[in-house]
Computed example of a mutant assay.
Amino acid sequence: MKKIVVALALVVSSAVAWAQPARIPVNDLNTGTNNKPNNNTTNSPNTTTTTSSELKKYSDPKGRYTIGYPGDWKFDDKSENAVFKITSPAENGEDKFFQYLNLQIEEINSGTTVDDYVKTNMDAVKDFVKGYREVSSMFFNRNGSRAYQIIYKGKPGEMTYDVQIKQLFCVSNGKGYVLTYLSKEGERDAYETTANKIFNSFKF
């Protein structure tokens, strides 16, 4: 399970990079650019279509998942540290903190249960997040499989302020999925409802 621990460390360390007040996206550290993705899918294998007045549907070209996201959120499937990142727009001209979601997918042993997967990952999180405190957690049925959702707060890595992290853990067909939403703790989250809709739209 060492690989699982390393994968989750990337999720949380990615959160550190994205949540700094300077607000430099991970990809910008390597490319110096932050261009919005081209959602024109005429000649693209990545199917992005409007599913409602609020969400667009993205279908993974490898057939592993689908997810919806609002058209004014930035969708990036070229990240080195996650399968994708979906970043909120600024709430106003003074907003320097952007909420975001990301997804990790990894190959795992066929006998690994979601309970095993959660325990290994959360043990690593508790070591990595200073002042870790759980807000809520539950196992439940999702897409016909047992899944786990948790919300917790703390300071990941070298962060100097608390964030709130919501994560969904799923295991299916030899793959582990971790969907993460990060927001700033102690502030009203204007995008919480939208983030919940994105979470609910995720299918694997």
Rank of each mutant, 00 (worst) to 15 (best):
K175N: 12
K119Y: 04
A82T: 00
I24A: 02
I67R: 04
N141T: 10
D189W: 06
T51W: 02
K197Y: 05
N38A: 06
T112D: 11
Q99T: 05
L101C: 11
F84Y: 12
G63H: 02
L103P: 04
K153W: 01
S14D: 11
V11W: 03
R142Q: 13
Q164W: 02
V5T: 12
T31D: 03
Y177A: 11
N46W: 08
V114N: 03
L10Y: 15
N35T: 15
S137K: 07
M1F: 09
N46E: 08
I24T: 11
T194V: 13
P45A: 02
T47G: 04
P37K: 07
P45C: 07
T41S: 15
G144L: 08
G71S: 10
K155E: 07
C170D: 15
Y152F: 12
I86G: 00
V6F: 12
N81A: 14
S145A: 13
M1E: 05
A124H: 06
A195T: 00
G93W: 05
F84S: 04
R188Q: 10
N121P: 02
G186S: 03
K62M: 12
E158C: 05
N43L: 14
P37A: 11
S201P: 07
K74Y: 07
K36M: 14
S172N: 13
D115Q: 13
A17R: 06
I198C: 03
P70V: 02
P89F: 00
A82F: 03
I105N: 04
I67N: 03
Y132M: 02
L8F: 09
T49Y: 08
N102D: 14
P45E: 09
N121D: 08
T193A: 15
N35D: 15
V129F: 01
N40S: 09
G32Y: 14
Q20G: 02
W73D: 00
Y148I: 00
N35F: 15
L179P: 00
A124S: 13
S13N: 12
A195W: 01
D123W: 01
Y69E: 02
K2Y: 10
S137W: 00
G63W: 10
N81T: 13
K96T: 11
M159Y: 00
R142W: 07
P45H: 04
I150N: 00
Y65F: 13
F128M: 08
Q104V: 08
I67L: 10
I198Y: 03
I86Q: 00
D127H: 12
E94S: 12
L29I: 09
D72K: 06
P61H: 06
T66A: 09
